[in-house]
Amino acid sequence: MNVEWYIVLSALLFTTGAVGILVRRSPMVILLCLELMLNAGNLALVAFSRMVGNQQGQVFAIVVMVIAACEVVVGLGLIVALFRRKLPLNVDDLRELRG
C-alpha cells in the first residue's frame, strides 16, 4: 500500500476525534476522543517513518504513547475527584473557570 493511504486514514481519524471533542459533553468520552487524535498522530508518525525507511519515527510514536498514558491517568484522576465531590460530569456544567 502506498504511504498516502495511511496519511489520509490518519487525517480521517483525527477529524473523527475532533468531532467527538466538539460534540460530546461527558469528560470521559472527551478523553477517549483525545486518545483517538493522539492515535491518529501515531499512525502518521509510523507511516512517515516507514516512508523514510528510518526507525526513529517509531521511537517517537512510543513516546507519544507514554504521553497519552500520562494524560489518561491524570484525566481519570480528575474525573474520580469530580465524582467524589458530587459535581456534575458534564463539561457544560463545569463552567466556574469561565471568564
Partner: peptide, 22 residues
Amino acid sequence: LFIELSIAVLSSALLALGTHGP
C-alpha cells in the same frame, strides 16, 4: 479541518508520498 489536512498532504513536496517507501 479534514479538507485542510488533505490539502496540506496533497500539496506537500513529500517526494516519496506516491511510493511504497524504500
